[in-house]
Write a protein that binds this DNA or RNA. Sequence first.
DNA 1: CGTTCCCTTGAGTAGTTTCAATACTTGTGG
DNA 2: CCACAAGTATTGAAACTACTCAAGGGAACG
Lengths: 248, 248
Amino acid sequence: MRRTERFLAGRQRERFSGDDLDHFESMINGVKEHQDGRFLVKQKTWVENCHLVIEGFVFRTIQVDTRRRIVGLNVPGDFIDLHGFVLGQLDYDLVAAGPVKVGSVPRERLAEAVSQRPAIARAMWLATLLDGSIHRRWIQILGQLETPRRIAHFYAELHARLELVGRKHAGVLRTPFTQIDLGDMCGVSTIHANRAVGKLRKLGVCDIRRGDLYTNDWAELKRYACFDDGYLHGGGTPPPAADYRLRA
Amino acid sequence: MRRTERFLAGRQRERFSGDDLDHFESMINGVKEHQDGRFLVKQKTWVENCHLVIEGFVFRTIQVDTRRRIVGLNVPGDFIDLHGFVLGQLDYDLVAAGPVKVGSVPRERLAEAVSQRPAIARAMWLATLLDGSIHRRWIQILGQLETPRRIAHFYAELHARLELVGRKHAGVLRTPFTQIDLGDMCGVSTIHANRAVGKLRKLGVCDIRRGDLYTNDWAELKRYACFDDGYLHGGGTPPPAADYRLRA
DNA sequence: CGTTCCCTTGAGTAGTTTCAATACTTGTGG
DNA sequence: CCACAAGTATTGAAACTACTCAAGGGAACG
């Protein structure tokens, strides 16, 4: 299986030519595995390589004083630090959430690809736009839903994103996330995250145990979470035929 | 004064050649003024033109049922719907916040510029990355600060962003935002926004009246708001000399 | 000069936090 | 195999933050 197999899978990946896909695969100059909690990239340092998640999950965190906020989550197929390629540095830290496998692309190779392959340039831009879209939804969720629904929405999103990259989860979605993580994501205390998890259990929406979510009705869970997958821009919504490639 | 004068001002605008700047200016094929509350672009519709804010403010909102969330704010110099250029449609609505003047760029012109002018292509990507960076900060703020600090942070950010595009505000920063808007931005009820404004007044941090913020100590306000401008990627942080243009 | 929208204030309720204490898991070494 | 340690999960109680409902006051606009 290609290391870049999941990049933009479910979201216009089909626009790549076979040659582009080959080239893209060749840009990965190394793969590393990291343990849970490992800092992959620190904010405010010069980004020399960009990283693609191949296996596992990565948090984007911002730490202020003693308190950590998780401002984003990345799944297999996601680039995690493209911002650093253009801006030079990141405004967040990257932390392995559970064991993770990431591929590395040197910035010169990326610069070259972006300058010479319009499809890849466009794809990179697209990837960062998808990030933005998810960010906006998180902002909405944080301000609009009570904690149990935030947690449900988070898992619903994860479920949908994993499905886009080819991973179906029926009765259980396994993750390495602790309730501490859930709290940091939802902007609430750990204890409150625990009570919210308890409420989801009591309501019969789902059962979250040590990060693993059990449910036999994803549709009901998504309804409860007010989840609407439009913002993920999955498969069915490619724009009309008009040309919007970076180069003609 | 050029209509594109403020685009990326304070953030690598100096990287444009004079020719690029001329070309960029020529892409604007029309300028329109809109009144407060006017919907400029609706979500989930095909984006045929992209828009640049020339004067005034624009909200990015997401409406669910009767409740509106403001997930972003744009100021002069900002493109407000570049996402639609690549993704075809937006995941949010654009609403005029007070009277606003916007320039319009047809997508074919943008497609052409992006394909033939690497500096412009890079700038467009950069512009959307800055959006993302601000989004992440909002996520952090929403989860980490209590309401009075959120409001203070919001004004602090606005102050800094306006300064980047050449607008200094000493004793007062005038905006058309109502307390309803502040509540929708901070993810709290209007009434609670009102009480938070009252608290800022009582603390002596600032005095917000009908959207206008009065203070004689911006540094103190920013300290109170835990504001750190790094995420805006202003002037002082261009990356090292390495080439990261879209095309050689 | 009245309508309308916005701001302000009060009271009761619900959601969330902190502090504190008690279990449960998992991994490690004896 | 058991005991222990460390991290994680759970529960209770008091304090705080924020929400809703409700009513009154102020500023802007026609």
